[in-house]
Design a protein around this nucleic acid. Structure first.
Length: 450
RNA sequence: GGGCUCGUAGCGAAAUUGGUCAUCGCGCCUCCCUGUCACGGAGGAGACUGCCGGUUCGAGUCCGGUCGGGCCCGCCA
């Protein structure tokens, strides 16, 4: 295959005649001279189409946004007066000598790179995703998953793939999607929890990144019915604090990676990377609740979790008092946690577990898990679950399981908070919510009626 | 599941207490322009103000219903 020259690389071809491919971003028509901003996956550059170059002018002078082109021409340094210091490649341009149109395009149904409502954005995702903003967001997201895997591989973790179709309710309680499995009822996985725990018995340290499903009928800026969970699970830990330490180092690694590889995208989004402290502050839920009572007068001391507004309050508090945009909340009441949750022997009734809050939102839940078979069975019974239904999972514990723990991290939540978008759906390529699976569900319903 | 709120050209917005106000910007079409970079200039097309009904001499504006969007809460990542 012929090596294609990317627009980001044209500075190495000054004076040469080369061919570049891409999409029309914008045309500025001055009559006898036409400027085209052409973008490919790497960058943009200005094409100069002059009437003098008859071949190029004939083909290219009338192009419109999103037309797909191949342009051949000479890469030139711009004259002093025509340099644009505000854009990438602002000191270069291509003088077109010929061009080919691969595909024309209809007029976009929205204003590119302008403010549009979320509804319009979601209705035209195949096109709105082509904007600078969206491409920056999802390049960053791709780096996050890449760095997540990179860090864990360096630390002895093995990547695993886990099923998304499961037979029994994974953890009890949560709403799961049902599906017909050859006449049996199966569910869409709401987490990889059981499989990654089982795999601790195989590899000791495992991780996976995949979609999980929640049939919760919510409609907020931070919930999706299908989201991406970044999970790891590791054996031979002393306590949940080992998991917290691992996550802290992981965050450090991810942020360093983004700083190195996505600086331009953060600039596009006007977003700022957080500093990850050497030790992320950690407080017990009860300590925080007392603090909230003391500082705000609001009494939430008996609640099993923090309310969203208190999570935001805690963000301000941690930033002010600890200089950290991250904070761990530990020791939730065991009664409100899943059956595999490990009770703190030094703090009975409370879990050796934690949430990680970033910029005022919960992005991670993690903790130590019960590894003793009998205790696990006992815990299931306490929660009103039938151990027989979990016999497959329990095998791993019956035949030897090290002390272990892990966590799940919501990729879209992390992305949204990192890049500063208000709604999590802007941090999801093709978000699934109550009302929309690519198209509006209500419209499908309407069509069926007709 | 509960609550709040919004619905005006392709897109984003404006219309004092209901009284020719359906307006502006972008985009689109035609024409002019060899240095722009959100190019500029001249002209033009495009909306029964989501839908149905009501109040009124008069409704984009008020009321009821309906459809759709958004947000918050519960639950969670």
């Amino acid at each position: 295959m012929e090596k294609r020259i990317l627009i980001s690389d044209i500075k190495n071809h000054i004076g040469e005649t080369i061919t570049i491919n891409g999409f029309v971003d914008l045309r500025r028509d001055h009559g006898k001279i036409v400027f085209i901003d052409l973008r490919d996956r790497s960058a943009k550059v200005q094409i100069v189409v002059s009437e003098r170059n008859t071949d190029a002018y004939g083909v290219l002078s009338g192009v419109k946004p999103e037309w797909v082109l191949s342009v051949t021409g000479v890469i030139k340094k711009r004259g002093e007066k025509t340099i644009n210091p505000n854009v990438f490649n602002g000191d270069l341009e291509m003088e077109a000598t010929s061009g080919e149109i691969f595909q024309m395009a209809e007029e976009l149904p929205f204003e590119k790179e302008q403010e549009i409502t979320l509804e319009t954005y979601l209705n035209y995702l195949p096109l709105t995703l082509r904007t600078d903003r969206a491409r920056a967001i999802f390049r960053i997201q791709a780096r996050i998953t890449d760095a997540f895997g990179g860090f864990l591989r360096e630390n002895g973790f093995t990547e695993i793939q886990v099923p998304k179709i499961i037979g029994e309710d994974a953890e009890g309680g949560a709403n799961v999607f049902n599906l017909d499995y050859f006449g049996h009822i199966a569910h869409l996985a709401q987490s990889p929890q059981f499989y990654k725990q089982i795999m601790v018995g195989v590899f000791e340290r495992v991780f996976c990144a995949g979609n999980v499903y929640r049939a919760e009928p919510h409609s907020t800026t931070r919930h999706l019915n299908e989201y991406t969970s970044l999970d790891f699970e590791m054996g031979f830990i002393k306590s949940h604090e080992d998991i917290m330490e691992m996550e802290t180092r992981m965050m450090e690694y991810i942020m360093a990676d983004l700083k190195k590889n996505c600086a331009e995208d953060f600039k596009t989004l006007n977003a700022v990377l957080p500093d990850v402290p050497e030790k992320i502050p950690a407080m017990k839920l009860r300590e925080i609740q007392e603090l909230i009572k003391k500082e705000t007068g609001e009494d939430c001391c008996n609640a099993p979790d923090l309310e969203p507004k208190h999570e935001r309050w805690l963000y301000d508090y941690a930033l002010k008092n600890f200089g950290s945009e991250f904070i761990f909340v530990t020791h939730f009441p065991i009664s409100k946690r899943p059956m595999y949750t490990y009770e703190d022997e030094n703090d009975p009734g409370y879990a050796k577990g934690f949430d990680l809050l970033f910029r005022g939102i919960e992005i991670t839940t993690g903790g130590q898990r019960i590894h003793d078979y009998n205790k696990l069975v006992e815990s299931m019974e306490k929660k009103g679950l039938d151990p027989k239904k979990f016999s497959y999972y329990l095998q791993a514990f019956k035949y030897g399981m090290p002390p272990h723990g892990g966590l799940g991290l919501g990729l879209e939540r992390l992305t949204a908070k990192l890049v500063g978008v208000e709604n999590i759906r802007e941090a999801t390529l093709f978000p699934r919510d109550m009302h929309r699976i690519d198209t509006l569900l209500s419209e499908e319903k309407k069509e069926k009626k007709d």
